[in-house]
Amino acid sequence: MKNEFIHNDELIETEMEITSDGVDVAVGDSTYHIVELTEGKYRVEANGMKKTVCCVVNADKTFLDIDGLLIELGIPSEDGNSSGGAGAVAGEKDKIFAPMPGKIVKLLVKEGETVAEKTPMVIVEAMKMEHQVNAAAAGVVKKINFADGDQVDTETPIIELEIEEKEE
């Protein structure tokens, strides 16, 4: 049985075989022997390493806890797109979204302005804290869809950018 996951824009392929007490999963050069302890909790053995790892699957992602470190993997959908796991999805760098639903405290750029990568673009307040959202790429501010004080969700871009073509 084969599976694919996405982590930091990279595809990871796995191949799984059922054994007498669990499964063996091959990833690259390593093989992991996995036994389910209770729902969502797994015992993993590989190359002398033994770990208990928790994992749940929800919609298009898997969520894992490895010794307190949290990782999310994207599950590619039928049409080849994916949630991409954590981080911004490539190709969406021209849109600035709120990291979570909240209120716009201050827009830091104007339409027509040229910005460098990592330029602070907007400050959004959520959970009683202010969050600065920076440009993911250099470009020109094409369109601003909100004003200071507006409520925003995570679906509608706050700012749209015209990305500068990068010279390789």
Binding site: N3, V23, V27, E36, V44, A46, C55, L73, I75
Partner: peptide
Amino acid sequence: SSLAAAVSSAAMMRKVN
């Protein structure tokens, strides 16, 4: 990430003993 992908495979199958 390989370890994470291995466990994710197992979790997706939901058929592990």
